[in-house]
């Protein structure tokens, strides 16, 4: 346990600026703002070790999701398959290249960076240490979160499968299953919950 004085015992609602005394929450409990109804805080379901294990699993799934094709199709004896990178490349054509960068960030780069940064901070946090560059890593995780869009990508893959099934032979690839698991893992590890490390590691004032 960290000494109590290091713990910032107050919580401010980010949606309405209400100030509350923080109360310790059990796993599965949530605290809501009385004024605006936003979530203030959640009890942690997972330990640091469990988060680290899930991060390693996510890294493996990320590799599988990127190496194996997510969809393959065949037409009159010809076959084609697409990986995540392949779909980004398909957009990198002339005037529309900018959108390839956005999609590349949303489905490959942001999740990969999230996993790498989480692995780094959690690896040290497991031993109660503050990782070198901890503050920069934690700030980067906050700024990456809105741009990581694996849920949307997964739905996009399913829609593309249904769309093409009308005119061609379509098969889901290995990458799709890895992608589905990766999405669930990212939801578990990369949420706002990770801010608990600031307090659990007792990161002090500069």
């Amino acid at each position: 346990m960290q000494p109590l004085e290091r713990h910032s015992a107050r919580i401010i609602c980010e949606h309405c600026d209400s100030l509350y005394e923080a109360i310790p929450l059990q796993a599965g409990q949530s605290a809501y703002c009385l004024r605006c109804g936003a979530v203030l805080d959640r009890g942690h379901r997972l330990s640091i070790e469990q988060l680290l294990a899930l991060t390693v699993a996510a890294a493996i799934m990320l590799v599988l999701a990127n190496v194996f094709p997510v969809i393959s199709i065949s037409l009159q004896g010809l076959t084609n398959e697409v990986t995540l990178w392949g779909s980004v490349q398909a957009l990198a054509q002339g005037r529309i290249t900018l959108i390839a960068l956005v999609v590349g960030l949303a489905i490959i780069l942001a999740p990969a960076l999230q996993i790498a940064l989480l692995f780094w901070v959690l690896l040290h946090a497991r031993r109660g240490e503050i990782a070198p560059g901890f503050k920069a890593c934690m700030r980067a995780l906050e700024h990456l979160r809105p741009w990581s869009m694996l849920e949307v990508c997964l739905l996009g893959i399913l829609v593309a499968i249904v769309k093409l099934a009308g005119m061609l032979d379509v098969h889901a690839g290995t990458g799709l299953w890895a992608m589905a698991m990766l999405m669930v893992l990212i939801l578990l590890i990369a949420g706002k919950d990770i801010r608990r490390l600031w307090e659990e590691l007792g990161v002090g004032h500069s």
Binding site: I71, V88, A90, A106, G156, I157, A160, K163
Partner: peptide, 20 residues
């Protein structure tokens, strides 16, 4: 908000696949 990206991803996937 970000669910609107759906159509962009569908077009990317379909365009990458259907190249015969």
């Amino acid at each position: 908000g970000y669910w609107s990206m759906l159509d962009v991803l569908v077009v990317a996937l379909v365009a990458a696949l259907v190249q015969f």
